[in-house]
Each structure stands twice: as C-alpha cells, then as structure tokens.
Design a protein around this nucleic acid. Structure first.
Lengths: 352, 352
DNA sequence: GGCAAGTTGTAGAACGTTCTCCATATAACG
DNA sequence: CGTTATATGGAGAACGTTCTACAACTTGCC
C-alpha cells in the first residue's frame, strides 16, 4: 500500500505543493499557509516547510494560483513600444516591483483598440492582480467596466473624474505652458504648435491636454485667441511630407512646440536637410526629454515628464489598490524644462 | 429543486464554460470540444454552442486553461527595452501572432541573470506554450534545462550545437565582415572596432560573434593578425569617458566599426562636440540600422539585420515546435549594409 | 437479425493551488 | 477537575478548464 502511494507522485517530475508537503511530513494546507504566511503556523512547522521548499526548489504554479486566488503578477499595457517614453515607465514599474514578490508582464497593443481590448481581457482571464495601462485608447466608460473586474491604474490618461480607476499623469497642460513660457522668455512671439493628427481626439489624451495648455499660455501671453496648431500624421510617408510643407511655408513661425520628441527630432533633421537653421531660423522645443534629445548632435530642448517616476507612482498606487483601497486617486506630477541649443543659442553651439 | 440549481451559478457573475453549456443545453465536455475544435462534433452541436458563446460573450479563463492544457500564450523575454533593435523584434512577433489565437506576453530582464531566470520560471509556471528569448544572458546548459519544460527559441544567441532549443540569428560574423569590407572599399586601412565591455564574454553573444567576424575580415584584408578591438563600458559615466578617450587618442584610426548603433550614435555626437569631423577625420559604421541612424541629422551607416524579420522567423519556428517538432533548427539571416554619410562623403552631404 | 465499425455526446477525473471549516492540543480559569 | 478560550494543524471543497474513457446510437455488411 505504501509502495503504491509512493509511486504515484513520481510519475510526473514537477514539484508541487504536495511534494513539499510529503517531504516535510505535513499537510498540503500547512504548506499553503506558510507560502502565504497566513495566521496559525508555529515556528517549528514553518522551519520544516521552508527547508523542504528549499531542498526541492519548489516554485508554486502561477497558473494554479491564478485559478484560485492571487497570481502576484501585474499586467502593463503599452500602446507602442517605439516611443522612448514608454521604456522609462517600464523601468519605473520594474524598479518598484523588484523587491516585492510581484512581477510585471507586458502587452503591446500597437495603438489598436481591438488588440488593446483583447489584451486587457487576456490579462483579466489570467487573473492578474492589477493592470497599469499606459496611454490607453479606450474610452473611460469601457475602462470603468474593466475596473470592476480588476484594479486599474491609467498612466497618461486624463480623466480626473473617473471613480472606478486611478490615474497618474504629468500635468500635460502645465508642460505645454512651460514650453510656451520658455519660448516667450527667449523673445519669440511667433509660435506654433505641431500636434498629433489623431483619428479620434480623446480629450483624455495627453496630446489634447498639451494643446489646451498651449492655447492657454499663448492667450495669456497676449498672442491671439486661437493660436495655430498644425497636425502631423503618424504614419511615415505623410508624416515627413507634412513637416516639409511646414518648413517650406513662407509664413513659417520663428518658434515651434512639438507634442513629442519623436516629431521634434525628425523636424530637426528635415530642417537641416532643407537648410533651415536651428535655432537661428527656427527654435524647436519637444516633449519627453528622450535620450536622443540629449545627444550633442541633436541638442533638442524638451519638456521632461519623468516617465520613470510616473511608472513608480503608478505601481505604488496599483499595489495599494490591490491591497484594498477603493477610493480613486488622481495624481499629478509637474514636468520641467530641459533647455538645450534648439531653444536658444548658448555659448557652446554646433556651428561656432 | 430547480430553483436551487438556478441560483447557484448566479452567485458569481463570471461566464464559465458551465454557463455556456447550460445555455446551449449540452454538456461541459461538448463546449470544450467545440472550443478546441476537437474531433467528434456535429454541425448542429457546434452551431448551438457557438451561438451560446456569442450570446454570453464567453471568454475561456486563461488561468484555468494553463492549469490543464494550452494557455495559447507565448512569452517573450527582452534583455533591455531601450535598445531600438528589440521593439523591431516584438513587432515581428506580434505580426505573426496577430491572425492566430496566440498572444504574446513580454518580460523585461534588464540584462540581470537573476531576473532573467525568475522571469523564465514565471513563464513556465504560467504554463505558457512557448518562449522566445531575445539575447539571453544565461549559459546554454541552463537554457537546455528549461527547454525540457517548455519549447524555446533563442534570438541573438549563437549556439548552433544546441539540440534542446532553436536559435534564430542574423549572421553576426558576416555582418561584421560586411562592415569591414565596406570600409576597405572606401580605402580605409586603419580600422578599429569598438566593442562592448561585458562582464562575462559569452561566445554565444552577438557581440563576440561580431568581434570574430571583424578579426577575420581584417586578416583577410591583410591588416595584421590581431586587429585592435576597444571595449566600451555599458554604464553611463564611464561609457562617454571611454569614447572621449578614444576620440582624443593621437593614434586614433581613420575608421571605426561599432558593435551597435547605440554606441555609434553617441560616438558621433561626442565627435562633433570634440571637433572630430565625420567622415573626414573618422569614418563610423554602426550595427542595427536603427531609426535614429536614418535621421538626416545623424546619417550613420549601419549594418541592417532586420529585427522584424528575425521576430517573424522565431515566432514561426516556435509555433512549429509547439505543434510537435522536436529536432532543433538553427536559422541564419544574412545582414546587409546601409550606406550613409558617416561612411563616406556622398554628393548630398551635411556641410556642403 | 446480429455483429463490427464508426459517429456523437457525456461523465468525471485530473491539474495545483487557496481557503473555509473543523479537530485536536494546550492554556487559562473558576 | 471541568469548562472555556486559544492556539495549531488538517480535510476537503472549490476554481474553470482539458481530456480519457465510455455509453448510446447509427450504419454497413454478411
């Protein structure tokens, strides 16, 4: 009889909670208790179990855990892996998660609503413990519906009225204002914004927020009630085309604020090709303070919103929500200006 | 009695396979069969079940699936999310996966062996169906051990003798040769390589492979039996320091081949700052053909290894392995040169 | 009409956890 | 010494799937 009992567990080589229990000479429930450090475990038992876990190199199955309780995994949804702002956020998330027993799994939606939905659903179906959505495309009502099923923190999503989920943002309106103020301080009056030509202009999107901030700062500076905002397409052939058109305009402004470094850097590049000098003919300021902007070769002034910090804050918020908080939080960070040559000639210029 | 039966399923609002079965008036097993389109299902049954699935918007729990069988998820492990080569690979993976019922979940290891191990283990514990490891740091024996538990394809990992897992690579030796040949064709004889200063120099790593190719091409060109290879640290203050030191050397070569665009672009930038003209004083060629290299502002010649294609190939290989292939495959792509101004002055130069 | 072979559907045992009871042992108290 | 509280450990039912048997029902064929 005891032979039969011994043979069965050996058929499969996976070390399960049962293997550990047998090895330690205790019940399965006891091992589970130790794992979750639940109430009602003596030091002696704990020691024996941890020894067995050590000896067998036991790892709990995340699949099984997900089926019953916590999976200790949080999902991160990225809209697009190419934007250099996103890796920063990930770094922040991983930094906070590293010392904890949580792990991050990342999904990339390529900005497609369809895929975004199905990835969120998958993460729910995995019984992940919570979700960090970075610049999601989905409308607030849909997110609220998901938030009933799983704790959600949205980053780069402006909806301070949401009650079902948290938001963590840099103050994009303020960021745009800072950009305009910097240009004004350099003496420029002739300023335009180059924004993103999105299909649906969610008011929640960071881009729209930056447009609002731009308009307000321009009005406050006494520069007309409806300052010019150009739209640049996302996809590649039309994108460069639109920028060239802007650069060759006769009434081109003296200064431009780009919604993202991505566009600002390409603009800088095309300007050079077309013989438009920066900053003499055109001052440029970007957004995100990406590592490329910091290159001496590029030297692009930019608004820094510290993606890393946003990631950290979002992660902490998510964990607190997972651990029981229900009231929603809406956190704002104040971005800052990083001044470089594209804004105004400094002593150490490119072409001295 | 029927009241009791009806109440129980309603306690929880999740739609499970049981809900679907009840709604369609069939057994749970029947629904499962339809889901997996297994053998032994009549058209009538299938229709009824799919109708019920539609009506209830049923989504199978991935957690439960993972516990028993397939999870229809593949894990992708990235060493570092910042290197612009990686997003390309992801794009390739997602492209192939999109029309299938598989989904990708990404983990980021930050090049730390510890974290890499625990992420792989997590993915196994989730019962993911297979793993794509991009430039993993772990030694081959360890990967082989993991490969027993889960199908693995390694990208950017040179071990053609591995029998337990597949590898997909651009031919990095050949890529380096192409770079050297291009420099030779431009008339340069005085060529060095700037490589990565890694702690442990795995022979499997792409960087070491590029070094091998560099040496071979140099010897073949009759340029000494042990050409100079400098090592650049990864971390930021020392990295720039090493590059500045290289640039200010009296015996600085006329041409340099960098292991990655990441370094080549920074080098270009520092060269400009220090008044070293490219390509007049120094020709530079990078590796990866990143989007930044293509910018007119940067104009860096580079070896293109098409990360997207590698991602596609790896994904197809993984799926075929998941579906039963056991013999290992080792696939090579031939990289190509993208010539730009940093290599040799062309008609349309920066400073004409 | 009887038997083999094929088709279609179901019952029910896994899978590896968590977690609610419940049993037992020990301590505290009158 | 009996009664009640308080620790400690265990049994066993979930969780939502998959998948192996097997039952029931058709056919086909002699």
């Amino acid at each position: 009889m005891s032979i039969e009992e011994k043979q069965k567990p050996q058929r499969n080589d996976r070390v399960t909670i049962r293997t550990v229990a047998t090895h330690a000479g205790v019940s399965v429930a006891a091992v589970s208790k130790v794992m979750r450090n639940a109430y009602g475990v003596s030091d002696a038992l704990r020691a024996r179990v941890t020894d067995a876990i050590e000896a067998l190199a036991y790892r709990p199955s995340r699949a099984a855990r997900g089926l019953r309780g916590r999976s200790f995994t949080i999902g991160v949804l990225l809209i697009d892996i190419r934007n250099p702002f996103l890796p920063e956020v990930i770094a922040g998330v991983n930094g906070v998660l590293a010392p904890s027993h949580y792990q991050a799994m990342i999904g990339v939606s390529d900005a497609r609503v369809q895929l975004e939905t199905s990835l969120i659903e998958s993460m729910i179906d995995y019984k992940m413990d919570g979700l960090i959505l970075v610049a999601p495309r989905l409308p607030s009502e849909i997110l609220a519906k998901f938030a009933v099923q799983i704790p959600i923190v949205a980053v780069g999503y402006h909806d301070a009225s949401a009650t079902a989920f948290d938001t963590v943002n840099a103050d994009d309106q303020r960021g745009a204002e800072i950009a305009v103020e910097a240009l004004l301080a350099c003496g420029y009056r002739d300023i335009e914004m180059l924004s993103l030509g999105e299909r649906q202009g969610h008011a929640v999107s960071v881009v729209r927020q930056r447009e609002i901030g731009f308009r307000r700062a321009m009005q406050r500076g006494g520069l007309g009630s409806s300052p010019a905002i150009g739209k640049i397409p996302i996809a590649s052939p039309k994108r460069e085309e639109a920028m060239r058109k802007f650069l060759s305009r006769k009434d081109r402004p003296r200064a431009v604020f780009c919604w993202s470094d991505l566009d600002a850097i390409t603009l800088l590049s095309l300007a050079m090709e077309m013989g438009v000098r920066v900053p003499e003919d055109l001052a440029v300021i970007g957004y995100d303070n990406s590592s490329t902007a910091a290159l001496g070769l590029v030297n692009l002034a930019s608004i820094d919103q510290s993606g890393r910090e946003l990631g950290q804050i979002a992660t902490r918020a998510l964990i607190s929500r997972i651990e029981g908080r229900t009231a929603s939080e809406h956190i704002f960070q104040i971005p800052s200006l990083v001044s470089r040559n594209s804004l105004k000639r400094s002593g150490n210029s490119t072409d001295r």
